[in-house]
């Protein structure tokens, strides 16, 4: 996707987009474009402004300032028209506990004025897609968190949206349930659905996003592909050292020169180096005896730490 892509091509176009709640600035003049067919992510900790941004894109919250176009239209004027073509997976499921699994999809389809017979057929297809077909006639409440999430995703697809918005799609799910959700989202992307998601999980952003912006304190602090962000803001590898708690103060100066950068966290020390193994042996040569050492590749977590000095999940 060329960086020079024009505004007309972008499914979402934001310049100086701002959201204020009384005195609190939730989103502070951010710029971004989401291109057709890509998976675009907002990565950041809780309270960074991700949900407020998503609600503005979803035309349920109006911007306090700046410019926003969604599907080429103005959300303030054309909210219902835009929403007719969006799929929305909110942060907290808003499923109807009084209705069965299939009824949840049927009733939602009706909000889009989809004829009943079409809605019934689509309900079958979508329940199959999210692997809930055998639960069609079940109550919603006893479903697992992962199943409810998949049902919410199915519901968001009932109007065959070209743009799917997901606010923290896998927060609170166990690893297996997360992978199942990721797999379905990946398939949707393959089918040409444009995906915009927020997450505070770096692995989710890396798995799903072609491009992402890192948000912190209502602002965008970096943007690019996961790979390019890691290349730009981190080293290839990271050496993680854990020391006995009382030994930590004795470190000062002893790690100098081993790595490009050293981060001392409360529970561990991170050494950013091109070659993690070489750094580990250098640590040992200096007579340091950490309780454990781990060499891993850099992740978006490291990018975030570098950019903000804090961890993503606190």
């Amino acid at each position: 996707m060329a960086a020079s892509a024009t505004r007309a091509d972008a499914l979402v176009h934001a310049r100086g987009l701002t959201k204020r709640f009384d005195k609190l600035v939730a989103v502070d003049a951010i710029d971004f474009d989401v291109q057709r067919g890509e998976a675009f992510g907002f990565l950041g900790p809780n309270g960074a402004g991700k949900t407020s941004t998503m609600r503005m894109i979803g035309c349920v919250s109006s911007p306090s300032g700046g410019e926003l176009r969604v599907l080429g239209l103005d959300p303030v004027i054309d909210g219902p028209r835009i929403r007719a073509r969006l799929g929305v997976v909110p942060q907290a499921d808003t499923l109807d506990m009084e209705l069965r699994v299939d009824e949840n999809l049927l009733t939602y389809a009706r909000y889009f004025d989809i004829p009943r017979d079409v809605a019934r057929a689509r309900t079958q297809e979508l329940l199959e897609f999210v692997q809930l077909k055998d639960r069609a006639k079940d109550e919603v409440e006893p479903l697992s968190g992962g199943m409810k999430r998949r049902l919410t995703i199915a519901r968001a697809l009932v109007n065959e949206p070209g743009l799917l918005l997901l606010d923290e799609p896998t927060t609170g799910l166990d690893p297996q349930a997360r992978h199942l959700v990721w797999d379905r989202l990946y398939r949707l992307k393959q089918q040409g659905v444009t995906i915009v998601l927020t997450t505070h999980y770096m692995d989710e952003a890396e798995q799903l996003c072609d491009r992402l912006v890192v948000m912190d304190k209502a602002k965008i602090v970096a943007s690019g592909s996961p790979r390019s962000l890691i290349d730009q803001y981190s080293t290839r590898e990271v050496l993680e050292l854990r020391f006995p708690i009382d030994a930590a103060p004795a470190l000062d100066g002893k790690l100098d020169g081993i790595a490009e950068r050293v981060e001392v966290l409360p529970d561990r020390v991170l050494l950013y180096a091109h070659d993690g193994e070489a750094a580990a042996s250098a640590v040992h040569q200096r007579g340091l005896r950490p309780e454990s050492t781990l060499v891993r590749r850099s992740t978006l977590e490291d990018v975030f730490l570098r950019l903000t000095g804090r961890s993503l999940i606190e």
Partner: peptide, 14 residues
């Protein structure tokens, strides 16, 4: 509690 209206307002409904 169930945020049913939020779900509705994410659709063309006003």
């Amino acid at each position: 509690w169930l945020r049913t209206y939020d779900g509705m307002l994410a659709t063309p409904l006003t």
